[in-house]
Structures are given as structure tokens and as C-alpha cells.
Design a protein around this nucleic acid. Structure first.
Length: 180
DNA sequence: CCCTGATTCGC
DNA sequence: GCGAATCAGG
């Protein structure tokens, strides 16, 4: 894949929206998070809303200068993009909406251990995105259990989501028959 | 382990 | 310019 204008625009939008590099990579498709990060830096829009980095961390990557005959200046990159607004807190508009509403009844569809639950902020390519509970409730969350990369749901919810309609009906019928 | 962004450097 | 490899950190 190449960086077409459309893809660059989408990248800018998603990045400024606060999505992580890997999330953006998944959104764009056919690209890794490294590519996204690299592009973000080249575009000069790194360091989004974030508390002002206090003591600069002396970044050093890879083996300390392996082959350097005599001259490899590498201006250590101009400290250009250090200008940021005061201290904008990163927030996700989606969660904002989901949290604003009344806390009333929270019909939990099933139990998922607290430690495995996911919010819209913690979902990744490998977390189950099965929604649980009332979306307008405080207790709404996503399954969050492990799912294979690129697969939206964990094995358990995959079975539910992708179960053929006929099978489901068959199950339902079985239950009704058993009851009758 | 999972993940995050930052950086370097061969291509 | 691109992005894998690597780093430092949560």
C-alpha cells in the first residue's frame, strides 16, 4: 500500500482523534503500526494532546552507531514540534457519549471478569468486541477477552455471532421441544 | 505478556 | 520517503 492523499487524510484525522498507531494501521489496512508512526513523524504531527513531557528522555535506539567512518552528523532532528497547547487531556468522544447517560438499570448479559473487560478505549485488534450491557449505561463494556488478530470476537462470541441462522433456530426449536 | 509512541537507518 | 527493527516505557 502507498500513502495516497486519501489515506494520509484519514491518517491525520484518526491520529488527531487520539487513535493509537496500531488502531489506525488496522483501520487503513495493509499496513503496520510502524508505518503509521513513521508517517506521522514525517508529517510532523507527532506528540498530540499529552501532558507536557517534563525531563526529555534521552532516546537512543538500536546499536550505538555501528558503521560510522568519520562523518555522520545526523542533526538529531530539530526540536520543532515541541509546541503544544497547555495540557489538553486526551478524551474519546465515543466514550463521552456512552458515559453521559443515566446509570440506572444495567442488564448485564453475562459475566466477564472485571480484569478482562474492555472499554472503547482499550479495544485492540486482538480483543473481543462483543458488546455487553446497555450501551446507555455506566456498566456497558466490551467482552475484551482475547481474540485472534483480525478476528472481532473471542472464540466464545464467535460461536454466537457466526452461528448460522438455521442452527440458531434449530437450537431454539430444540429448547422449545424440550420444554413442551 | 500485552500494549504504547520514538528513533534509527537500510532500502 | 518508507517502514522494520529496535528501544524505552505503561
Amino acid at each position: 500500500m502507498s500513502w495516497t492523499d486519501e489515506r494520509v487524510e484519514l491518517l491525520k484525522k484518526l491520529w488527531t482523534d487520539g487513535l493509537s498507531a496500531s488502531q489506525i494501521a488496522a483501520e487503513l489496512g495493509g499496513i503496520t503500526r510502524n508505518a503509521v508512526i513513521g508517517k506521522v513523524h514525517r508529517l510532523g504531527l507527532s506528540g498530540r494532546a499529552k501532558a507536557v513531557a517534563p525531563a526529555a528522555k534521552p532516546r537512543r535506539a538500536r546499536t550505538p552507531t555501528p558503521q560510522t567512518p568519520a562523518a555522520t552528523p545526523r542533526p538529531a532532528q530539530a526540536p520543532a514540534a515541541q509546541s503544544r497547547g497547555a495540557t489538553a487531556l486526551k478524551m474519546d468522544p465515543v466514550e463521552d457519549v456512552a458515559v453521559e447517560v443515566a446509570p440506572e438499570a444495567a442488564p448485564v448479559a453475562e459475566i466477564v471478569p472485571m480484569t478482562e473487560r474492555a472499554t472503547i478505549l482499550t479495544l485492540t485488534e486482538r480483543t473481543c468486541k462483543w458488546p455487553i450491557g446497555d450501551p446507555s449505561s455506566q456498566d456497558f463494556y466490551f467482552c475484551g477477552r482475547h481474540s485472534d488478530p483480525g478476528v472481532p470476537y473471542c472464540a466464545h462470541h464467535c460461536r454466537i455471532a457466526y452461528q448460522p441462522v438455521n442452527d440458531r433456530r434449530r437450537d431454539k426449536d430444540k429448547k422449545q421441544l424440550a420444554r413442551a
